[in-house]
Amino acid sequence: MLIQVAVIGLLTGGVYAVMVSGLTLIFGVMKIINIAHAAFMVLSAYLAYWLFSGLGIDPILSMIGIVPLFFFIGKVTQRRVLSPVGDDPGLLVLLTFALAITLEGVLGSISGSTFRTVRTGYTSSIIPVELSSDLTLRLPVVRLTGFVASFVVLGVLWLILNRSGLGRAIRATIQNAEAAQLVGVNIARVRSTTFGIGLASVAIGGALFSLIFSFNGSSHLDWISKMLAIIVLGGLGSLPGALIAALILGVAEAVSAVTMTSYISPIVFYLILFLTLVFRPQGLMGAKVREG
């Protein structure tokens, strides 16, 4: 039983990785904690839900439209709303919080508070994997899809970061913004593009999210704290760290829900988050991040 639980946790962790990859990237480049990240994910989930229930478009397919849209929204938001405020972390946290409740209010007014979820033909499909005569793993197709997608997304992000001019500029900015500017990197553009990429990745997370979980306008509040915990444990700003932390937390959460009561496990979760922030702000993976 524990193996089954752990495997499901691992698959879920993969989906978490997609959800948080943009959040940690944005922090890395801009030192902004984007509290609205989960709200944007819920927005994307709603778009996927509406396209599915209205036009019958599968969420995986609807990403083709939603992802570029989110990239654009991200670029504009960064330029017009975030960058004029400057770099006070407290002010920026509040600002993104304001964006989050604005999104929540708009989504709530449009669609009420009924929880929605996308039910496709394969929603409750299972792929059985026989490990031995008495142990058959049951892999839910939607979570497996999410897991695979997370490696695709992270792979693409890795390619962008390591094999393109833009990636070089982003990495330079993460390491030292002032120095990057001196060698001719257009910091403003790097920042808005990064924010766009961050939102584009969470758009994918949202489409997967709509397949697996129920959501309404207020759901983002439950998810943002989990997302923050993951990127903090992974080391703020570190993509590989976020992936590993997401997988670990996915498994730990699932296993602890079985071994402890499901109520104690979130306390442990936040306690680890709290202690990490205070004693190891560079994260468990050790990627050193300069304080903003």
């Binding site: 039983m1 089954q4 639980v5 499901i8 946790g9 879920t12 979980f213 129920s214 759901s219 439950d222 959460e253 699932a254 296993v255 829900a257 079985v258 499901s262």
Partner: peptide, 8 residues
Amino acid sequence: TDFSSIAI
């Protein structure tokens, strides 16, 4: 939101 552990 996630009941998979409980369900298993």
